[in-house]
């Protein structure tokens, strides 16, 4: 038996008393090694988890869209404010139909949203309007985030709705997302972790989109509308952010597809 710092026991038995602020040399070395291991480990784990985190743009059902170089498609920059004149329709969510051009021979159709998680501030009804805002893009999806209130235009402006083309009844696998976050307002804008946010957007009247596992008539997304062409009912919220199979009539409107959803035929995958 020996005494060290008044403690009975062998000298090699280093006993730590927290309030004394002292630790024996061997214990101090051991604790220094533990501290270094913890610090190094924390750094490596943080780096590894982030470096190999899932690609947010690849987000949908493991397929995702790729650009020409094979990389994930990235939403374009906001691109500043634009003033667009077109025809606003109310088939499902409000859509802005821009006149046909060389790039969009059937007409160019944009989804519409307001600032934050709410729909655009538009005059009642449909018809020619002038809208001011920023355009979000991801792949083929285009959404105008409308600033201020849309201004109705005279019917004589010649701004007509884009051509409607029925494509028949379809059964399609994919994931229901909110059109704004999926278009690039959030990265990722899909998946179960984003479900609550997506539902909040849909409650705020942001258009819902259906991102498909396989391309449908050349498109990976469809705008969702109720069976009668009205906005979606709240029943859909439970089906957001998870793999599902939907059925309904598909229509091509300009350069986008719209699915008129049959609510009784939704199925969880």
């Amino acid at each position: 038996m020996t005494q060290h710092d008044g403690i009975a026991g062998p000298r090699t038995d280093e006993f730590f008393i927290g309030w004394s602020g002292k630790a024996g040399p061997r214990l101090s070395r051991f604790l220094a090694v533990v501290a270094m291991l913890c610090l190094t480990g924390m750094g490596f784990i943080g780096y590894g988890l982030s470096r190999h985190a899932d690609d947010p743009a690849a987000g949908l059902l493991r397929l995702g869209e790729r650009d020409g170089a094979g990389g994930p498609v990235r939403p374009d920059d906001w691109g500043g404010e634009e003033i667009l004149r077109g025809h606003v329709s109310r088939f499902g969510p409000p859509l802005l139909h821009l006149p046909p051009s060389g790039e969009f021979p059937r007409g160019r159709v944009m989804l519409l949203a307001g600032d934050g998680k709410k729909g655009p501030d538009l005059p009642a009804g449909s018809g020619p309007m002038e809208l001011r805002g920023s355009v979000l893009r991801r792949g083929a999806i285009e959404m105008l985030v409308v600033e201020g209130q849309g201004q109705p235009l005279d019917a004589s402006t010649g701004l007509n709705p884009a051509m409607h083309e029925p494509l028949g009844r379809w059964r399609i696998a994919g994931e229901i997302c909110d059109g704004k976050c999926y278009a690039g307002a959030m990265r990722p804008g899909s998946g179960l972790a984003h479900k609550a946010c997506a539902n909040l957007c849909l409650i705020g009247e942001i258009p819902a989109v259906f991102v498909t596992v396989d391309p449908i008539a050349g498109s990976r997304f469809l705008v969702l509308a109720g069976p009668d062409g009205r906005p979606l009912p709240a029943d859909v919220y439970d089906w957001v952010g998870i793999p599902v199979e939907l059925q309904g009539e598909v229509e091509r409107i300009g350069n986008v597809l719209v699915l008129r959803l049959e609510l009784t035929r939704m199925r969880r995958l």
């Binding site: 943080g46 947010p56 990235r74």
Partner: peptide, 13 residues
């Protein structure tokens, strides 16, 4: 550190 090592277009917000 880690986001700097990821290819452009694969970053989370």
């Amino acid at each position: 550190s880690a986001p700097r090592g990821r290819p452009a277009g694969t970053l989370l917000d």
